[in-house]
Design a binder for these strands. Structure first.
Length: 573
DNA sequence: GCCGTTTTCGGCCCGACTGTTTTCAGTCG
């Protein structure tokens, strides 16, 4: 199996860690980290690019040397330079840097003076008070290290965006209620609408002397106050989620919001532009020879560099700055562009609400149409529909359509794609429906080739319209099945099929990069909720967020079309 | 190690907080 971009990025990050501990040139270290970031977020696999002999050094932050190293990793699965340094610097030291408060310098001292090389060694040394006497350490640091090591769970978990909203909203209200506070907003990856967030970044503007930081540290859900100063503070909530608060004067709102929204690489790119113009950007404003020339709004800042306003979802240094300069930024799709939801379940299979409930709830949300897509017979655990039950549902939908004034229900089904690439119901049944969505619910472990061909074969069926949750991943729970998404997208293009952006918070499948790839290859998507209850219809916004991160415009999304146009899109024969 | 409408050499984002120091290094975002 080819090495994934994520795994290549991990190797470079590990190399960067070990080089840093070894005291290498910090800029060289950063170069490896930048390259790792580029590789991780690149929409095409390094493996394929190497196979097609493309020039990797054209990617940002990747030059001749790193390009050659990527090639070696792809072809041999190894990075010899990493293996060489591991003979001098134990690889586990890289894990120790995951402990908050431990960076390369301290890890180096711990290893050099006490031969500590694992988190377990670290715990024992802290318990037996051997750390406090090391140079640059003390009693307090030792206690902090012990506490962090004891609560260490391995991988730092990332919180689903939807869960983060539930935590953030009440906290926001609590902080707004503070005297002297003017504005409070959540910045960081939350504002960029990433599918998961590592921490919450809250920005407040307040008069000097406001006690907003104190109020923040006294929030009832705070488990530990990590730091707390005049203008910033970090806490851990009882759940373990880290929350950072930064306070700036209101006149710096735009600069601070921009700064704390990131991403880091977007900010660095912009700051480099500033440097070339002999200007300086920080969280308080843009400065030219110590004179503040912008900072009240984000728009002002972009304007200063000849750039159009860049939506937060695009700020990943993936070409948005160039696009803003050349006035070719996309006008991103928004929730109000969505005219209907094309994936939902009812009590006929595994949904919690009836057909009528779902239709009425959708109408209340202002939709013009919905598609009812209960499961097909193969999915027995969900009580999937056979031909007879499906036809009964179609009749029920016809009756309801006769009754409901303000919404049209499309007859549809979520069809299982069987292992050999056949669809779970015969064409004679499918031809009676307005559309189908097709998906994989079994045989996740097929080889990449077999899985890909399974889907392409299924798409050969002229009643195949939308490929639902195309990679099958469940965030933090289940990896995507191994599939060549590029071939699938190309296959959809040839055959007139569409891909779904599933808005369920733990699916968000297609993800942002894949959305972008689909757009580049000329394939349109449907953004749908996969709702199993009335309340889940509100997840639409998370799907839209993901599509926005993938640069999609309303014209890239089929369920922004009026009903008549939409119906035509599903006629393949 | 990467990069280039100042450059193929000499730069590389920048400020806050903590703890250990006694003026600052290390870490973080």
């Amino acid at each position: 199996m080819p090495v994934s971009n994520v795994n290549i990025a991990r190797l470079f990050n590990r190399l960067a860690d070990l080089l840093e501990i070894d005291g290498a040139n910090p800029f060289r270290v950063r170069a490896y980290r930048n390259a790792a970031q580029t590789i991780r977020s690149h929409s095409r696999s390094m493996g394929e690019m190497v196979a097609q002999e493309e020039d990797l050094s054209e990617l940002p932050g990747i030059g001749k040397e790193i390009a050659a190293k990527i090639k070696t990793i792809v072809e041999h699965g190894r990075l010899p330079q990493l293996e060489r340094i591991e003979t001098r610097v134990p690889a586990e030291l890289s894990d120790m840097m995951q402990i908050e408060g431990l960076g390369p310098k301290r890890v180096k001292v711990l290893y050099r003076d006490l031969k500590i090389r694992s988190i377990e060694d670290l715990r024992r040394a802290a318990q037996t008070h051997r750390i406090r006497d090391l140079p640059g350490f003390g009693e307090k640091t030792e206690k902090t290290i012990l506490r962090r090591v004891q609560t260490w769970t391995g991988q730092a978990p990332r919180t689903l965006l939807a869960e983060a909203e539930d935590i953030a909203e009440p906290m926001l209200r609590y902080l707004k209620d503070c005297k002297g506070v003017k504005r409070v907003i959540i910045a960081g990856s939350y504002r960029r609408r990433k599918e998961t967030i590592g921490d919450l970044d809250i920005l407040a503007t307040a008069k000097t002397g406001s006690d907003v930081v104190q109020r923040f540290t006294r929030y009832e859900d705070v488990g530990e106050v990590v730091s707390s100063g005049k203008t910033r503070s970090t806490v851990h909530l009882k759940s373990g989620l880290q929350v950072d608060l930064r306070v700036v004067p209101d006149a710096s709102y735009g600069a601070a919001l921009h700064y704390f929204t990131g991403s880091k690489s977007h900010n660095i790119a912009l700051r480099t532009m500033a440097q070339k113009r002999k200007m300086k950007i920080n969280e308080y404003g843009v400065y030219k020879s110590n004179k503040k020339i912008a900072g009240r709004t984000e728009t002002d800042i972009y304007k200063l560099f000849g750039l159009a306003y860049i939506d937060p979802e695009l700020r990943e240094n993936r070409g948005e700055i160039e696009a803003a300069r050349d006035k070719r930024l996309p006008k991103l799709v928004s929730v109000k562009d969505i005219r209907g939801d094309l994936h939902m379940h009812t009590t006929a299979t595994d949904g919690r609400n009836s057909l009528r409930d779902m239709a009425e709830a959708a109408a209340q949300r202002g939709y013009e149409y919905i598609a009812i897509t209960d499961h097909s017979r193969h999915l027995t655990v969900a009580n999937g529909l056979d031909a007879k039950r499906l036809m009964k549902q179609v009749e029920a939908i016809d009756r309801l359509n006769g009754e409901l004034r303000n919404i049209t229900i499309l007859t549809a089904i979520e069809l299982d794609i069987l292992e050999r690439g056949t669809l779970d119901l015969p064409d004679s049944v499918l031809k009676e429906l307005d559309l189908t969505i097709c998906s994989i619910h079994s045989s996740f472990r097929l080889s990449r080739k077999k899985q890909t061909e399974r889907v392409l074969r299924a798409m050969d069926n002229p009643y195949f319209n939308i490929f639902a949750h195309p990679t099958g991943r469940l965030i933090n729970k289940r990896e995507a099945y191994d599939i060549d998404l590029e071939r699938v997208v190309a296959g959809a293009k040839e055959r007139g099929c569409y891909l779904e952006v599933n808005a369920e918070p733990e699916r968000l499948d297609l993800n942002d990069d894949a959305c972008r790839m689909a757009k580049h290859m000329g394939v349109k998507v449907a953004i749908s909720t996969d709702a199993h209850s009335v309340s889940s219809l509100d997840h639409m916004r998370f799907g839209v967020d993901q599509a926005r991160r993938g640069w999609l415009e309303a014209s890239d999304v089929i369920n922004t079309r009026p009903l008549n146009t939409l119906r035509r899109l599903f006629k393949r024969i």
